[in-house]
Design a protein around this nucleic acid. Structure first.
Lengths: 195, 195, 195, 195
DNA sequence: CATGAATGAGAGTTCATTCAT
DNA sequence: TATGAATGAACTCTCATTCAT
């Protein structure tokens, strides 16, 4: 029994073709806000259900495969941000980018909201993300630019909640950037004006 | 065809008994985070399915019946707040109380999050709520204690998102009050310190 | 236990009022081609379901109550026809009138089509109708103006079928009278021209 | 979305086995005059409900699958009849055969009576049938052996009505052929004896 | 007698997952 | 390895009839 991977080893070329087709179709589903039912995705991709299940044992696996690149980008961004000269800029950059990604990519948003990773690689990525975000927050706390009672999981929750606020009910709010500003302002330590 | 009401006229005593039993059971479902399936609720309440459907034509009606009291309390609170001497206190009180209610009562939280009212009385209540919240925000804007780019629907969305943040995944975050503080701080006009 | 009657004895005035209201509403249902569900009829008549069931123990009883006058008219017409001077005119008159009644009155048409009387009086009426129609046909056979292999039940079936033909699918055929002409022509003995 | 077909492409052997089993059971239902409920048919065929729904998305589809062969036979017969030397023989043959088929095969009878085709192939067949029957009637009119006010839809209605007359109430009338003779005689132009 | 709440079997349908081909 | 047919539990909803009030 192999551990599931959202990003698999090298595949035979036909398998790779199927996998890509499935992901492409699944993407259209989540972009429309519809659940990526394996059967429906398989059918629309012109592939047997069994094949779909071989590649993605559950909807969750499919979701993680859809989101893993974005998750990795997010990790890179946080790691870059940790070493930025200005801590406030770093945090602002990370929060803004994360929010945008989650609003634009329902797969990523859903994944971070619901958790419960099924693939070893996405789970590991998520773990690394927590570590890096904690580092970022630690620095922010040290420099006094962020509340001291917030950890990485709080930030994840707040971002997921904010994304819900922005896209809930299938309608995207106008100018979602306002919501990031609100979060960023709210994250600063109390009684401390914007620099 | 009578228009559905979440809070019906006086009921015959047996009907009232069943209705209460259904609502009690439904409450345990939503409190556990489970969907209040009409059949399951009916069965557990020791009542025929048909009876459940007579009282609540759909899960949505059931949800609204579960939430209407809390919704009304919320409206009262907002109306009281509008005439409070201090606008900042008023807003803080409303946001705090609303957040607590939604976190404690999943029915209320789900209702405000998903919208789509089926009962005339809950829909009316929700409409009144928007009016009152807009009044509250207008006053806040006038007095310069709240961002000018936020309306009642934004506040609803933000509160629903914050509640998601606090209770998502079936686990309630520790000390949810922190999240309200974040939101309240974020709602203040930029570059303006807490008084 | 009383035997059911489509046309009951004298009723208390309030009972009579309810009965009439139920029948009036039921008539609108069958005229629209909808089944006269006891619950729906009762509700629309502003009467309790129990009351509806007291007056009409089943949809069938309701149907018979709706049709009994027309059935009686039909019987009168046949009895009158039997003693008419011209047998061909008599048959033509009966067939034409019966067809028209059944096309115009879905309750009557359905009753004669499905049989299975639940009320003693409608059943008796139907029995009398068979007797009279057989007399009419006997005379017709004697005078050589009608096929010899047709009895009253055949004629009922043929008329019901013809009505189905005319109104099937909720769409009434244009000029239904053509269909009566076809039946009348078909009923004449073979090889015998219209006089 | 594939368009439904009453007669599918080549099936995998297991699918073919199930399909046949379902159709066999469904046949017994309609022959008993009972509605072919998908669930009941599936159960009696020893097959999951889902399988029944895969093969036949609705009762209507099932009905059309049951009737398509007979419908095709009927079309062949009409097309053959159109080119027969004697127009009267042609019409007689078609009417007689159609009536027999509908009386013997409740699926066919119900299909033609209720219309509302769900499968592309049966709908096409029905359309072709109208065309061919109209051709047959046109020739009959030209040769003066059929009433001029009857078109293909009238003939369909009359045949469906006649079949109702013959089999209504679950009891089949004795010697149904008499009814065809009546219809055939009735279809001839008025005042014109049988040749 | 009137009322209308309650009943519950059953119809119709969907979908995640398995497994024969 | 790919295919797609099969599965059946689960769910929503209806309606004819009964019975407590």
């Amino acid at each position: 029994m192999t551990i599931a991977m959202a990003r698999p080893e090298a595949l035979r070329s036909d398998a790779q073709r199927n996998r890509t087709a499935l992901l492409d179709v699944a993407r259209t589903f989540v972009d429309r806000g519809e659940p990526a039912l394996l059967n429906a995705v398989a059918h629309e991709a012109g592939v047997g259900v069994g094949t779909a299940y071989r590649h993605f044992p559950s909807q969750q696996h499919l979701l993680e495969a859809l989101a893993i690149d974005a998750l990795e980008d997010m990790l890179d961004q946080v790691r870059d941000a940790v070493v930025l000269p200005d801590a406030a800029d770093a945090l602002r950059g990370v929060v803004t980018a994360a929010f945008r990604s989650m609003v634009d990519d329902a797969a990523l948003g859903d994944l971070l909201t619901n958790g419960g990773f099924s693939c070893a690689d996405t789970a590991a990525l998520a773990g690394d993300l927590v570590v890096s975000v904690d580092a970022l927050l630690a620095r922010g706390r040290t420099e006094g630019i962020v509340r001291t009672d917030i950890d990485a999981d709080d930030l994840r929750r707040l971002l997921c909640g904010l994304r819900e606020a922005a896209v809930a009910g299938g309608t995207r709010v106008s100018d979602p950037e306002r919501y990031v500003e609100i979060l960023l302002a709210g994250l600063r330590p109390t009684n401390r004006p914007t620099p």
